[in-house]
């Protein structure tokens, strides 16, 4: 995974999917206070456990 290269942490990192580009791709993610962009198809490779959103 390309994220490995940027050493964004591995297990336990909270990733928020924030939005998409105007043409729906890439996806905008927030992790560790940083905004990253990733193709939707590639973001699918990140194994995630979905957290319950607070009301």
């Amino acid at each position: 995974m390309t994220l490995r290269a940027m050493k964004k942490g591995t297990t336990g990192t909270i990733i928020q999917v924030e939005s998409r580009a105007p043409l729906y791709d890439p996806v905008r993610l927030r992790l560790q206070g940083q905004i990253l962009t990733l193709h939707g198809s590639e973001a699918g490779h990140i194994e995630m456990i979905y957290m319950q959103e607070e009301a």
């Binding site: 995974m1 390309t2 994220l3 290269a5 940027m6 890439p26 905008r28 940083q34 905004i35 990253l36 962009t37 990733l38 193709h39 590639e42």
Partner: peptide, 10 residues
């Protein structure tokens, strides 16, 4: 094609 990873700075 290769994956697209880019930082959006504040």
């Amino acid at each position: 094609s290769t994956p697209f990873v880019m930082e959006l700075p504040p």
